[in-house]
Amino acid sequence: MSPLPAPPAWEQPLPEATPPPEVAVYQLPTGTYETRAAFAVRGGSLRDKRQFAATAVLVHHPRGDLLIDAGFGSGVAAHVATLPRIQRAPHSVTRTVSEQLDASGWDRSRLLGVLVTHSHWDHVSGLDDLQLPIWMNAAELHHAAEAADGAVFRAVSAGHEIREYAVDGPAHLGFPSSLDVHGDGSVVVVPAGGHTPGSVVVFVAVPSGQRYAFVGDLTWQLDGVRRRVERPWLLRRLADSDPAQVRQGLLRVIALAGLVQVVPAHDRDAYDGIPHLPDRTAPA
């Protein structure tokens, strides 16, 4: 099965980023659910079982901290039960983002909110335990308010403040526009619609010079980047609002491979090297 045509590698200088020394990134894994590789990427095997990650990311910044996605919440079993039967999969749950923040002694007053890459259930379930503002753009808010796959979001977002943002800044790393959250290049949001109309990629730069691209569901697994393959044809039709737009975003990310650590939301291995929050409640 032929891969996508290789895009030209990014050869321009990386955009300037001057993250303050305090900037740090943490992974907060909240559980997994099981999917066959054949349903995740073109050419995947039915015998290959993948444990899809449901992991949030915490970006610490002196001007305020942000969560990227919310993982599984305490009501995840009820959220799974709302899905069409064909979409339900065996899942396992660890600690919610809320529980991990408490165990670390994190100062929640520093949290600006949860910036969701898109509104699907496995990215927003944990909002039910987080009384924080939800950051979303207008296209994704509109989709979540009306689409069938926004039912869980509508339930868990009730009562939350919505901070609608515009992605109307300059082009960034091949994407047509951007939002520089803190104005220093440390957290930059770019539009990457197609999975849902308002899906985004979040680029994060840390003081060491390391850069991350949290790409949401542009691809479900690193195979999509390493092998240049999309979702299988049927899954593109079922899961994506605009498969051609997803392909365009995926190729943009593939062009950056080697310059940034690409993190598909559901690939557990993609989070390698990102530390967990320290657990202050664990025995010494």
Score class of each variant (00 low, 15 high):
residue 211 R to M: 05
residue 124 V to K: 07
residue 275 P to M: 15
residue 262 V to E: 05
residue 217 D to V: 01
residue 142 H to Q: 12
residue 75 G to Q: 09
residue 165 Y to W: 08
residue 102 D to E: 15
residue 40 A to F: 07
residue 8 P to C: 09
residue 29 P to T: 13
residue 217 D to H: 14
residue 234 L to Q: 10
residue 104 S to L: 07
residue 229 V to M: 08
residue 82 T to P: 06
residue 19 P to I: 01
residue 41 V to Q: 06
residue 262 V to C: 08
residue 40 A to K: 03
residue 136 M to R: 03
residue 30 T to S: 12
residue 124 V to H: 01
residue 206 V to G: 07
residue 55 T to W: 06
residue 137 N to E: 05
residue 174 G to T: 00
residue 250 L to Y: 04
residue 44 G to H: 03
residue 232 P to R: 00
residue 19 P to Y: 03
residue 154 R to T: 07
residue 13 P to A: 01
residue 80 V to C: 02
residue 213 A to H: 06
residue 190 V to G: 03
residue 175 F to K: 06
residue 18 T to H: 14
residue 57 V to P: 03
residue 49 K to W: 15
residue 197 P to N: 11
residue 96 T to Q: 00
residue 204 V to L: 09
residue 181 V to T: 01
residue 253 V to Q: 10
residue 56 A to K: 08
residue 67 L to Q: 06
residue 84 P to I: 00
residue 94 T to C: 04
residue 16 E to S: 14
residue 213 A to N: 05
residue 277 L to G: 00
residue 247 R to G: 01
residue 110 R to K: 14
residue 26 Y to C: 13
residue 107 D to S: 11
residue 259 L to C: 04
residue 226 R to P: 07
residue 14 L to F: 00
residue 160 H to E: 10
residue 125 S to Y: 01
residue 76 V to E: 11
residue 18 T to R: 14
residue 86 I to Q: 09
residue 141 L to F: 04
residue 168 D to H: 01
residue 215 V to I: 14
residue 269 D to G: 13
residue 210 Q to F: 01
residue 159 G to L: 07
residue 253 V to R: 01
residue 26 Y to V: 12
residue 95 R to S: 13
residue 274 I to S: 03
residue 158 A to M: 06
residue 33 Y to K: 06
residue 102 D to R: 15
residue 240 D to K: 06
residue 238 L to T: 01
residue 266 H to V: 08
residue 211 R to V: 10
residue 64 G to Q: 06
residue 36 R to C: 12
residue 209 G to P: 11
residue 217 D to N: 13
residue 156 V to A: 01
residue 152 V to W: 08
residue 137 N to F: 02
residue 134 I to V: 15
residue 30 T to C: 14
residue 6 A to F: 12
residue 246 V to C: 08
residue 37 A to K: 01
residue 16 E to Y: 04
residue 137 N to L: 04
residue 195 H to C: 00
residue 180 D to Y: 12
residue 224 G to T: 08
residue 32 T to V: 14
residue 183 G to I: 02
residue 73 G to A: 12
residue 99 E to I: 10
residue 203 F to H: 08
residue 266 H to I: 05
residue 279 D to K: 05
residue 280 R to W: 03
residue 176 P to C: 04
residue 80 V to G: 00
residue 238 L to A: 12
residue 73 G to K: 07
residue 224 G to W: 10
residue 194 G to L: 14
residue 44 G to F: 07
residue 45 S to C: 02
residue 111 L to Y: 11
residue 65 D to L: 10
residue 113 G to Y: 05
residue 110 R to H: 13
residue 43 G to S: 12
residue 100 Q to N: 00
residue 10 W to H: 09
residue 97 V to C: 08
residue 70 A to P: 09
residue 159 G to D: 03
residue 55 T to K: 05
residue 75 G to R: 09
residue 28 L to H: 04
residue 114 V to Y: 03
residue 59 V to W: 04
residue 146 E to G: 00
residue 59 V to M: 09
residue 267 D to P: 00
residue 130 L to T: 06
residue 81 A to T: 02
residue 28 L to D: 05
residue 215 V to R: 00
residue 248 Q to C: 13
residue 68 I to M: 09
residue 218 L to A: 09
residue 228 R to K: 13
residue 260 V to N: 02
residue 91 H to Q: 10
residue 154 R to V: 05
residue 87 Q to E: 15
